[in-house]
Protein backbone atom coordinates (compact mmCIF):
# COMPACT_ATOMS: atom_id res chain seq x y z
CA UNK A 1 0.00 0.00 0.00
CA UNK A 2 2.76 2.42 1.01
CA UNK A 3 4.54 2.05 -2.34
CA UNK A 4 1.34 2.15 -4.36
CA UNK A 5 0.41 5.49 -2.85
CA UNK A 6 3.43 7.03 -4.56
CA UNK A 7 2.25 5.94 -8.04
CA UNK A 8 0.08 9.03 -8.48
CA UNK A 9 2.82 11.40 -7.34
CA UNK A 10 5.41 9.78 -9.61
CA UNK A 11 3.04 9.73 -12.60
CA UNK A 12 2.24 13.41 -12.09
CA UNK A 13 5.93 14.27 -11.68
CA UNK A 14 6.97 12.43 -14.88
CA UNK A 15 4.07 13.67 -17.05
CA UNK A 16 4.42 17.27 -15.87
CA UNK A 17 8.18 17.13 -16.47
CA UNK A 18 7.80 15.76 -20.01
CA UNK A 19 4.94 18.10 -20.95
CA UNK A 20 6.57 21.13 -19.35
CA UNK A 21 9.89 20.60 -21.14
CA UNK A 22 8.17 19.89 -24.48
CA UNK A 23 6.07 23.04 -24.23
CA UNK A 24 9.08 25.15 -23.26
CA UNK A 25 11.00 23.78 -26.25
CA UNK A 26 7.97 24.67 -28.37
CA UNK A 27 8.06 28.19 -26.91
CA UNK A 28 11.72 28.51 -27.84
CA UNK A 29 10.81 27.66 -31.42
CA UNK A 30 7.63 29.72 -31.80
CA UNK A 31 8.62 32.66 -29.52
CA UNK A 32 4.98 32.81 -28.41
CA UNK A 33 3.92 33.79 -24.88
CA UNK A 34 1.16 31.19 -24.21
CA UNK A 35 3.47 28.19 -24.57
CA UNK A 36 6.10 29.88 -22.40
CA UNK A 37 3.47 30.53 -19.70
CA UNK A 38 2.09 26.99 -19.93
CA UNK A 39 5.61 25.52 -19.70
CA UNK A 40 6.54 27.61 -16.66
CA UNK A 41 3.16 26.84 -15.07
CA UNK A 42 3.37 23.07 -15.49
CA UNK A 43 7.04 22.80 -14.51
CA UNK A 44 6.88 25.37 -11.70
CA UNK A 45 3.92 23.91 -9.81
CA UNK A 46 4.68 20.27 -10.63
CA UNK A 47 8.14 18.76 -10.85
CA UNK A 48 10.23 21.75 -9.77
CA UNK A 49 7.98 23.10 -7.02
CA UNK A 50 6.19 20.11 -5.55
CA UNK A 51 8.95 17.66 -6.54
CA UNK A 52 11.65 19.69 -4.85
CA UNK A 53 9.53 20.15 -1.71
CA UNK A 54 9.16 16.38 -1.36
CA UNK A 55 12.83 15.71 -2.20
CA UNK A 56 14.02 18.38 0.24
CA UNK A 57 12.54 16.51 3.21
CA UNK A 58 15.41 14.02 3.00
CA UNK A 59 17.72 16.78 4.20
CA UNK A 60 15.44 18.23 6.88
CA UNK A 61 17.42 16.87 9.83
CA UNK A 62 20.78 15.99 8.28
CA UNK A 63 21.53 19.15 6.29
CA UNK A 64 19.18 21.95 7.34
CA UNK A 65 20.89 24.58 5.18
CA UNK A 66 20.41 22.48 2.03
CA UNK A 67 16.82 21.79 3.09
CA UNK A 68 16.07 25.49 3.52
CA UNK A 69 17.70 26.40 0.19
CA UNK A 70 15.68 23.70 -1.61
CA UNK A 71 12.46 24.91 0.02
CA UNK A 72 13.21 28.48 -1.06
CA UNK A 73 13.75 27.37 -4.67
CA UNK A 74 10.61 25.20 -4.54
CA UNK A 75 8.44 28.03 -3.20
CA UNK A 76 9.85 30.40 -5.82
CA UNK A 77 9.07 27.83 -8.54
CA UNK A 78 5.50 27.33 -7.29
CA UNK A 79 4.97 31.11 -7.18
CA UNK A 80 6.33 31.54 -10.72
CA UNK A 81 4.22 28.59 -11.93
CA UNK A 82 1.00 29.84 -10.38
CA UNK A 83 1.61 33.40 -11.64
CA UNK A 84 2.30 32.03 -15.15
CA UNK A 85 -1.03 30.18 -15.06
CA UNK A 86 -2.89 33.29 -13.94
CA UNK A 87 -1.33 35.24 -16.83
CA UNK A 88 -2.08 32.35 -19.22
CA UNK A 89 -5.76 32.42 -18.23
CA UNK A 90 -5.90 36.17 -18.76
CA UNK A 91 -3.93 36.32 -22.04
CA UNK A 92 -5.47 33.26 -23.70
CA UNK A 93 -9.13 33.41 -22.64
CA UNK A 94 -9.74 37.10 -21.85
CA UNK A 95 -6.97 39.20 -23.45
CA UNK A 96 -9.14 42.32 -23.53
CA UNK A 97 -10.63 41.99 -20.06
CA UNK A 98 -9.45 44.52 -17.49
CA UNK A 99 -10.88 42.32 -14.71
CA UNK A 100 -8.88 39.26 -15.80
CA UNK A 101 -5.78 41.44 -16.10
CA UNK A 102 -6.31 42.83 -12.61
CA UNK A 103 -6.83 39.33 -11.16
CA UNK A 104 -3.61 38.09 -12.77
CA UNK A 105 -1.58 41.09 -11.61
CA UNK A 106 -2.99 41.03 -8.07
CA UNK A 107 -2.33 37.30 -7.87
CA UNK A 108 1.27 37.95 -8.93
CA UNK A 109 1.67 40.57 -6.20
CA UNK A 110 0.12 38.16 -3.68
CA UNK A 111 2.29 35.23 -4.70
CA UNK A 112 5.59 37.07 -4.64
CA UNK A 113 4.57 39.05 -1.57
CA UNK A 114 3.88 35.83 0.34
CA UNK A 115 7.22 34.47 -0.87
CA UNK A 116 9.08 37.49 0.50
CA UNK A 117 7.08 37.20 3.74
CA UNK A 118 8.01 33.52 4.08
CA UNK A 119 11.67 34.35 3.52
CA UNK A 120 11.79 37.29 5.91
CA UNK A 121 9.71 35.86 8.75
CA UNK A 122 10.26 32.11 8.54
CA UNK A 123 13.48 31.70 6.57
CA UNK A 124 11.58 29.40 4.15
CA UNK A 125 11.28 26.76 6.87
CA UNK A 126 8.79 23.88 6.62
CA UNK A 127 5.52 25.51 5.58
CA UNK A 128 2.86 25.26 8.27
CA UNK A 129 -0.45 25.14 6.37
CA UNK A 130 -1.99 27.44 8.99
CA UNK A 131 0.72 30.06 8.54
CA UNK A 132 -0.84 33.02 6.65
CA UNK A 133 1.65 33.29 3.78
CA UNK A 134 1.50 29.53 3.17
CA UNK A 135 -2.29 29.47 3.28
CA UNK A 136 -2.48 32.48 0.97
CA UNK A 137 -0.03 30.98 -1.55
CA UNK A 138 -1.85 27.63 -1.55
CA UNK A 139 -5.17 29.39 -2.10
CA UNK A 140 -3.77 31.29 -5.07
CA UNK A 141 -2.27 28.10 -6.47
CA UNK A 142 -5.66 26.38 -6.20
CA UNK A 143 -7.30 29.47 -7.70
CA UNK A 144 -5.16 29.56 -10.83
CA UNK A 145 -5.78 25.85 -11.49
CA UNK A 146 -9.54 25.96 -10.94
CA UNK A 147 -9.87 29.17 -12.98
CA UNK A 148 -7.95 27.54 -15.83
CA UNK A 149 -10.06 24.38 -15.57
CA UNK A 150 -13.30 26.37 -15.72
CA UNK A 151 -12.19 28.41 -18.73
CA UNK A 152 -10.97 25.35 -20.57
CA UNK A 153 -14.18 23.44 -19.88
CA UNK A 154 -16.31 26.38 -21.03
CA UNK A 155 -14.28 26.63 -24.24
CA UNK A 156 -14.60 22.88 -24.79
CA UNK A 157 -18.41 23.21 -24.80
CA UNK A 158 -18.05 25.65 -27.74
CA UNK A 159 -15.47 23.49 -29.49
CA UNK A 160 -17.82 20.48 -29.37
CA UNK A 161 -20.38 22.43 -31.39
CA UNK A 162 -17.71 23.52 -33.88
CA UNK A 163 -16.49 19.96 -34.33
CA UNK A 164 -20.02 18.89 -35.33
CA UNK A 165 -19.97 21.47 -38.13
CA UNK A 166 -16.43 20.63 -39.21
CA UNK A 167 -15.19 23.96 -37.89
CA UNK A 168 -12.71 22.57 -35.38
CA UNK A 169 -10.24 19.73 -35.01
CA UNK A 170 -11.68 17.07 -32.65
CA UNK A 171 -8.23 16.43 -31.15
CA UNK A 172 -7.80 20.11 -30.24
CA UNK A 173 -11.34 20.14 -28.86
CA UNK A 174 -10.52 17.12 -26.70
CA UNK A 175 -7.34 18.88 -25.54
CA UNK A 176 -9.50 21.57 -23.89
CA UNK A 177 -11.50 18.90 -22.04
CA UNK A 178 -8.41 16.98 -20.94
CA UNK A 179 -6.67 20.14 -19.75
CA UNK A 180 -9.83 21.08 -17.84
CA UNK A 181 -9.87 17.67 -16.13
CA UNK A 182 -6.12 17.78 -15.46
CA UNK A 183 -6.14 21.30 -14.02
CA UNK A 184 -9.27 20.56 -11.99
CA UNK A 185 -7.78 17.36 -10.54
CA UNK A 186 -4.57 19.21 -9.64
CA UNK A 187 -6.44 22.16 -8.12
CA UNK A 188 -9.07 20.11 -6.31
CA UNK A 189 -6.44 17.65 -5.08
CA UNK A 190 -4.41 20.54 -3.68
CA UNK A 191 -7.53 21.94 -1.99
CA UNK A 192 -8.44 18.60 -0.42
CA UNK A 193 -4.82 18.13 0.67
CA UNK A 194 -4.79 21.59 2.22
CA UNK A 195 -8.02 20.98 4.14
CA UNK A 196 -6.64 17.59 5.22
CA UNK A 197 -3.51 19.26 6.54
CA UNK A 198 -5.56 21.83 8.41
CA UNK A 199 -7.78 19.15 9.96
CA UNK A 200 -5.28 16.39 10.68
CA UNK A 201 -1.95 18.18 10.69
CA UNK A 202 -0.50 15.54 8.33
CA UNK A 203 1.21 16.76 5.15
CA UNK A 204 0.57 15.33 1.68
CA UNK A 205 3.53 12.97 2.05
CA UNK A 206 3.08 11.91 5.69
CA UNK A 207 0.82 9.01 4.79
CA UNK A 208 -2.83 8.50 5.64
CA UNK A 209 -5.85 9.63 3.68
CA UNK A 210 -4.39 13.03 2.83
CA UNK A 211 -1.56 11.36 0.97
CA UNK A 212 -3.87 8.83 -0.73
CA UNK A 213 -6.17 11.64 -1.86
CA UNK A 214 -3.32 13.77 -3.20
CA UNK A 215 -1.79 10.82 -5.01
CA UNK A 216 -5.10 9.82 -6.63
CA UNK A 217 -5.74 13.38 -7.78
CA UNK A 218 -2.17 13.45 -9.09
CA UNK A 219 -2.81 10.27 -11.06
CA UNK A 220 -5.98 11.67 -12.63
CA UNK A 221 -4.18 14.91 -13.47
CA UNK A 222 -1.25 12.99 -14.98
CA UNK A 223 -3.47 10.88 -17.24
CA UNK A 224 -5.53 13.87 -18.39
CA UNK A 225 -2.50 16.11 -19.03
CA UNK A 226 -0.78 13.32 -20.94
CA UNK A 227 -3.87 12.77 -23.10
CA UNK A 228 -4.08 16.53 -23.68
CA UNK A 229 -0.51 17.27 -24.71
CA UNK A 230 1.21 13.97 -25.53
CA UNK A 231 -1.69 11.76 -26.62
CA UNK A 232 -0.77 8.26 -27.83
CA UNK A 233 -1.56 7.47 -31.48
CA UNK A 234 -4.40 5.06 -30.58
CA UNK A 235 -6.11 7.79 -28.53
CA UNK A 236 -5.86 10.31 -31.40
CA UNK A 237 -7.31 7.69 -33.77
CA UNK A 238 -10.15 7.02 -31.33
CA UNK A 239 -11.00 10.75 -30.99
CA UNK A 240 -10.96 11.26 -34.76
CA UNK A 241 -13.02 8.16 -35.55
CA UNK A 242 -15.56 9.07 -32.86
CA UNK A 243 -15.90 12.57 -34.37
CA UNK A 244 -16.39 11.08 -37.85
CA UNK A 245 -19.05 8.71 -36.53
CA UNK A 246 -20.85 11.57 -34.81
CA UNK A 247 -20.71 13.71 -37.96
CA UNK A 248 -22.06 10.83 -40.07
CA UNK A 249 -24.80 10.22 -37.52
CA UNK A 250 -25.73 13.94 -37.50
CA UNK A 251 -25.92 14.19 -41.29
CA UNK A 252 -27.90 10.93 -41.65
Amino acid sequence: MGGLVWVGFIAFFVVALVVGVRVLLLARRTRELPELLMGIGVLGIGPVGFGLMVFARQFETTRPAVYTAMLAVALFAVSCGAFAKFVFNWRVYHPDSQVARAIALLAGIGLFGSLVYAGLYHGFQAPDPLEPSSLFRSSLQIGCLLWGATESFAYWTKMRLRVRLGLADPVVSNRFLMWAIGAFAAGWGTAVGLVGQLVSGATTTDGGWVMVSSSLHGLVAAIAIALAFIPPAFYVRYIRSRAERNAAHASA
Binding site: V23, E32, E35, V92, D169, R175
Partner: peptide, 14 residues
Protein backbone atom coordinates in the same frame (compact mmCIF):
# COMPACT_ATOMS: atom_id res chain seq x y z
CA UNK B 1 -5.17 35.01 -31.04
CA UNK B 2 -7.99 32.59 -30.23
CA UNK B 3 -7.67 29.92 -27.50
CA UNK B 4 -8.10 27.15 -30.08
CA UNK B 5 -5.11 28.47 -32.06
CA UNK B 6 -3.05 28.36 -28.84
CA UNK B 7 -4.19 24.86 -27.88
CA UNK B 8 -3.62 23.65 -31.41
CA UNK B 9 0.04 24.70 -31.12
CA UNK B 10 0.40 23.29 -27.60
CA UNK B 11 -0.14 19.79 -28.93
CA UNK B 12 2.76 20.24 -31.30
CA UNK B 13 5.45 19.50 -28.73
CA UNK B 14 9.12 19.78 -29.63
Amino acid sequence: ETPDAVFSRLGGGS
